[in-house]
Simulated scan of single mutants.
Amino acid sequence: MAKSRTKQQNQRPAGHIRIISGQWRGRKLPVKDVIGLRPTTDRIKETVFNWLSPYVRNSRCLDLFAGSGGLIFEALSRYANSGLLFEKDPSAASQLQQNIDLLDADNATLVRGDTLHLLTTVPEHRYDLIFIDPPFRQDLLEDCCAKLEANNWLSADAVIYIEREKELNQVKLPANWTILKEKQAGQVCFELYQRT
């Protein structure tokens, strides 16, 4: 009984995300109610994309835990060249694909699977802008960052956005990542790094 209730929970629409700026400005996209999915709020997104304004246009983007797609769709709306989305949850992935189709975003590619496993493969391209917003309290962040470096996923001066829980304050990141910006909103810390 509990199982079917969880399944229903996973498939119920939770609401919408809104694209703030660019070619799809004002578009609302449906989001499924998936356990652990926390769409980045409009307020945080606005701050983040102010930070990212010098880097987005014509960039090749990678979203490691795409979830609602809020970050990658915002980047593509602002004329990023392409976006690769990783998502493990079948329900969230299905909604992401529907939203890609809805936007007719032929420069967005969804890969369904476990991010840590996907990062062990050799990428077809290197990426300029990376979004890392893993589910909280699952110890995924450090491993992801190490694999990005170890397996040549990053362009020479890639910019990396990280969203994490506030209490996770001892994070070991690659030594060649320099912090550019950081801010906190409630229980969420968000940071921007550049590879040097």
Rank of each mutant, 00 (worst) to 15 (best):
R12A: 13
A158F: 06
W177F: 06
V159H: 09
Q184F: 02
V34K: 01
D63C: 05
P123F: 07
C189Q: 12
H16W: 11
P54T: 02
L141T: 04
A14Q: 15
A105Y: 04
T120R: 10
R126E: 15
P30N: 01
G70E: 07
Y161T: 00
D128S: 11
R126F: 08
V188T: 15
G113C: 03
F136A: 03
L168E: 13
R38W: 02
F190W: 12
N50S: 11
N10M: 13
S53I: 06
Q170Y: 07
E149G: 03
R78K: 02
R57W: 05
T41P: 04
S82M: 08
P90A: 00
Q8R: 14
R195L: 09
I162Q: 04
N169C: 08
K183C: 07
E149C: 10
D101H: 11
S68H: 00
I17W: 03
I130S: 14
F65N: 07
G15S: 12
A150H: 13
N169W: 03
C189T: 13
A108W: 02
N50Y: 08
S155V: 03
Q11M: 13
I160H: 03
L129P: 10
L62R: 03
R164P: 00
T41L: 06
D128N: 14
R60H: 09
Y161M: 02
S94Y: 15
G69N: 02
I17M: 11
E46P: 00
A75L: 09
G36D: 01
F65A: 10
E191P: 01
S82T: 05
Q138N: 07
H16P: 11
R18M: 11
N107C: 11
W24T: 15
P13R: 10
R112M: 14
R112I: 09
D157Q: 14
K32L: 14
Q9F: 15
L141D: 06
G113Q: 04
L173Y: 06
S82D: 07
D128W: 03
Y55V: 05
F73C: 06
M1Q: 13
Y193K: 04
D157V: 07
N58G: 12
T109W: 07
R112C: 12
D143R: 12
T115W: 00
T196W: 09
P54E: 05
G186P: 05
G15V: 15
V159F: 08
E124Q: 11
A175I: 14
D33K: 07
R195H: 14
Q95C: 05
D157G: 13
N50C: 03
R5Q: 14
P13M: 11
S59P: 05
W177K: 00
R27F: 05
S82C: 09
T41E: 01
L52E: 11
W24E: 08
Y79E: 13
E191C: 08
L71A: 02
T121K: 14
E46L: 05
N99V: 00
F49N: 02
T121Y: 10
A158E: 01
K181V: 10
V56P: 05
P39N: 00
Q8V: 12
L64P: 00
V122K: 15
I132M: 12
L141V: 08
F190P: 08
L168Y: 06
R43L: 00
K45N: 05
G113P: 05
F131Q: 08
